[in-house]
Design a protein around this nucleic acid. Sequence first.
DNA 1: TTGAAAGCGCTAACAT
DNA 2: ATGTTAGCGCTTTCAA
Lengths: 340, 340
Amino acid sequence: MTNRPKRPLTLRDVSEASGVSEMTVSRVLRGKGDVSEATRLKVQDAAKRLGYVPNKIAGALASSRVNLVGVIIPSLGNMVFPEVLSGISEMLAGTSLQPVVGVTDYLPETEEKVLFEMLSWRPSGVIIAGLEHSEASRAMLAQAGIPIVEIMDVDGDPVDACVGISHRRAGRQMAEAIIEAGYRRIGFLGTKMPLDHRARKRFEGFTRTLAKSGIEIADQEFYSGGSALAKGREMTQAILERTPDLDFLYYSNDMIGAGGLLYLLEKGVDIPGQIGLAGFNGVELLEGLPRSLATMDACRREIGQRAARIIAEAQGSRSAGAQRIELTPTLALGDTLIRH
Amino acid sequence: MTNRPKRPLTLRDVSEASGVSEMTVSRVLRGKGDVSEATRLKVQDAAKRLGYVPNKIAGALASSRVNLVGVIIPSLGNMVFPEVLSGISEMLAGTSLQPVVGVTDYLPETEEKVLFEMLSWRPSGVIIAGLEHSEASRAMLAQAGIPIVEIMDVDGDPVDACVGISHRRAGRQMAEAIIEAGYRRIGFLGTKMPLDHRARKRFEGFTRTLAKSGIEIADQEFYSGGSALAKGREMTQAILERTPDLDFLYYSNDMIGAGGLLYLLEKGVDIPGQIGLAGFNGVELLEGLPRSLATMDACRREIGQRAARIIAEAQGSRSAGAQRIELTPTLALGDTLIRH
DNA sequence: TTGAAAGCGCTAACAT
DNA sequence: ATGTTAGCGCTTTCAA
C-alpha cells in the first residue's frame, strides 16, 4: 500500500509515473481517442498503483460538462420521495448521469437556496418536485439553460417539462367512488401543511366533487409532526368523538389512514359497513395491514423513471422540450371502500 | 425578466454590468474582504438583475475548497438512513458544508463506484455507513486525505473516525433481556442479507449470549424483498407452523416485527404471555401499533449529528482524528417482552 | 497514435 | 478599498 500523499495526485503524477504525456493519460482514463494497447496498459497500471482518483472539478471546468442531475424534493421522511428517487437512479444507471439530491422541507426559501446551490454546480439537468415555486426559483429554473423536469404534479404551469399525476383529478375520483358507494357523512383528515400543494389540490378536487352532489365535508381534522401512524389514531378518535355519525374518513396519506384503520378495528367498528376509509399513495406498507386500505397510487417510481429519461434524452439541449406527461393513478378499493 | 442567455453568465458579465473589477465582484459575492457599501450595492444589484449564479466548479478549482460532504449509505428504503441523513443535515445546516448522498444498495462493488465518484469531486469529508469495505474502498478512503467517519457500527477497525453502536452488544443485551424474562424457545426472523453486517453482528451477539445460557435458537426464518410488514406476517406464520412451541420471536427489524405483531394479535395469541416479541431500531412507526413492540433504538439521528460534527470540526485537517464514538442504544421493553 | 499550447471561470497572492 | 497577475487540473484544439 502506498503512503498517504501530502497532496492529491494529479494527472501529471500518473504521467510521470508512466512516462506518457498528460494528454494521453487523460485519453486512457476517459477511454476516449485512439491509444495503443501498450500505452493504455502502462497508464492504467500506473494510475491504479498510485491510487489516482481523477479530479472532476478540473475536468468539468475544462470540458464544461457536468454529469450531475439535481433532484430537489421536499422530504425524505415518508416513503414517497425515496421511491421517486429509486426510479430516477434506476433510469440513470445506464447513463453517465448521476443524481444529486437536495431536500427543501416544504419550505420555498429553502427550495430557493437548495436550487441556487445546485445550479451553481452547473448540473446537466434538474428534476424538482412540484409546480409551485417562488418567483426567484422559477426565474433561476428558466434561466438555467438546462433541461428542467417538474414532477409529481401536472396541475399548473411547468417551466419546461413535467411528469406527474393530476391531484385534483385524484381527489375527484376518490370522491366519486365514495359517493357511488353510498357514503354521505364524510370526514377529512390531513396534514397541517399549507405548503403541500398536492395535498391541497387533492382536497380541492375532493370537496368540489362532493359539492356537485350536494355533499359537504362533515368534519375535518389536521395534524403536524409526530408519528403518522399514531397521529392517525388520535385524529380518528378526535374526529369521531366530535362527529360520531361520520360514515367515511378520507385521509390525506396512507400512513395516517393505517393508524385510523388499526384504531377502528380495535374499537370493533364495522369497516367498511359502519365507516369506510381511504388514504392516498399506494404505499407498500399497506400490504401488511389487517385489511387493505382503499388508496390511489401516485405512480411514484414511474414518475422518477420518466423524469430521468427525459433528462437523459435531452442531454446537451437547453431544455427538456416542454413535454407534459400525465400519468394515471389507479384506484384500489381494498377492503375499506365498498358499496353499502 | 431577462431573456434566456445563450451561455451561462460569468463573473465577467457582472463585472461589466456593474463597472467593478471581477475580483471585487468576487469579493462581494462571497462576502469576503473589505468592500465599500457603495460598490457592494452596485454589484449585488447587477448580479441579481442578471440572474447570475456563480460557478462553483471554477471556484472550487481555484480555491481547492469544496464544501461538500459525501455521505454513502446502503439504502433509502427503510426509515433508518433517512433519519441519519436528517441528523447530518441538521448539524451541517449551521456550517458552509453540504451533504451529498450516494446509495450502495448494500453492494460492495457499488460502494466502490459511488465512493470513487464522490472522491473525484474532492469533498471536504466523507461519512460512510459500516466498517466493512472492499480493499479498494478502504484504500481510497485511507488515501483521500480528508476526514472520514464510518457510521452505524463500532465493532471493527475504522479507517479514521467512527460513530455508532455495537451491534454485537445490542444483540447480547436483547438476548439477556429475553432470557431474564423467562423465555426459552426462541426463534429468529431476519433478512436474507449476508452483506448487512450490522444485522449479522446483532445475530451473532444474540446467539452467543443465548449459548452461554445453554440456549440455542429453536428456529429461524429469512426473507428478502417485498413489503416488510407483509413479510413479517408470512414469516411469523411459517415459523410457527414449523415450530409451534416457540415462546419468543426476535425480528431483525421493527417493520417485520410489526407485521408479526399484527398477525399474532389477529390470531388471538396472548402477547407477551404465550409469545414474546422484539424488533430492532426504535422506529417511530411503532408508536401507532396496537401494542408497542419491544425494540432497541439505534441512535440514528444522533449518529448523523455526531458524524457531521466531527467532519465540520475537522475542516481543513487531513483526518477526523481517529475518534471512536460508541453510542448506547436503549432497550425498550414495550408491551411485548415481559417477565412471564 | 501522440504531444504542446491555450484556456475553462474563478480565487490566492500580491500590488496599488 | 480595489485592481492585476498567475494559476487551480483538467480537456479542447491543433500539430506532428
